[in-house]
């Protein structure tokens, strides 16, 4: 019930620039579905690593193919497949060693599908530049891993297993859930999510590149100015980019 997706990429920008762009990546023209970003916690540990915990609010649309698979009892208050969801993001940066590890996962809808995305960014400096990590130097590699797990029915199954004494009810639930899992609903949801993720990963990479280019041409001021424009566009609904 666990599915992996892995990809790697190299940004033609220095490690410091990429980490800055990571913090500043919303809003960008490719992220109109991201409604807000907040820092819940931030600290520096004894080794000088910066750890940040953020929460993003996204507007999401459940794909019609997933909607069809879900029983009404699970869907609850979703109307027309539209809803908001929250993503919890952890990032750890070691500026001396030149790496950043991130992990993002959904906070709600976990009963239907858990998605965990992990990224490992690594500074790459040309041999002749040694330890120099000036903002202009080198490129940055990133390996992205995404894990899906549909847990639809797992909770009910666990509950049923615990209540062994109520035999009839258990038998009924067991057969119901057994047929559910063999019908492959979990696998179908994972497959759909996997296809959407490939598409989404492309968009988030494009978004990072927009922010990095603004950083290169206009510095921090250029990024903030670009953000202001993106926000105005998002609010007036004139974004030329399709909602993801």
């Amino acid at each position: 019930m666990v599915k992996f997706f892995e990809s790697s990429y190299t940004y033609d920008y220095s490690f410091p620039a990429v980490t800055l762009a990571y913090f500043l990546r919303y809003p960008n023209p490719y992220s109109t579905h991201v409604l807000s970003t907040d820092v819940i916690d931030r600290s520096i540990d004894s080794q000088g690593r910066l750890k940040t915990l953020r929460i993003h609010r996204k507007s999401s649309r459940l794909p019609p193919a997933v909607l069809k698979l879900l029983p009404k009892s699970v869907l609850g208050n979703v109307s027309g497949g539209r809803s908001e969801s929250y993503i919890l993001e952890t990032s750890t940066i070691d500026v001396k060693e030149g790496w950043m590890h991130t992990e993002s996962k959904n906070l709600d809808w976990t009963g239907i599908l858990s998605v965990v995305e992990k990224q490992e960014y690594q500074r790459r400096v040309p041999d002749n530049e040694g330890d120099d990590f000036s903002v202009a130097a080198g490129t940055t590699g990133v390996i992205t891993t995404v894990m899906f797990r549909s847990r639809l029915g797992d909770r009910l199954r666990a509950r049923a297993n615990r209540k062994d004494e109520v035999k009839e009810e258990v038998e009924e639930k067991k057969s119901f859930l057994a047929s559910w899992s063999t019908s492959g609903i979990q696998r179908s949801i994972e497959a759909i999510a996997s296809r959407r993720t490939e598409n989404q990963l492309g968009k988030s990479k494009e978004g990072m590149k927009v922010v990095l280019e603004r950083l290169r041409s206009g510095g921090l001021v250029g990024v903030l100015e670009g953000m202001r424009r993106d926000r105005e566009m998002a609010f007036s609904g004139e974004s030329v980019f399709k909602r993801g």
Partner: peptide, 10 residues
């Protein structure tokens, strides 16, 4: 800058 989920915290 990105907005806060709570407008009062912006």
């Amino acid at each position: 800058m990105s907005s806060s989920l709570a407008p009062e915290c912006n």
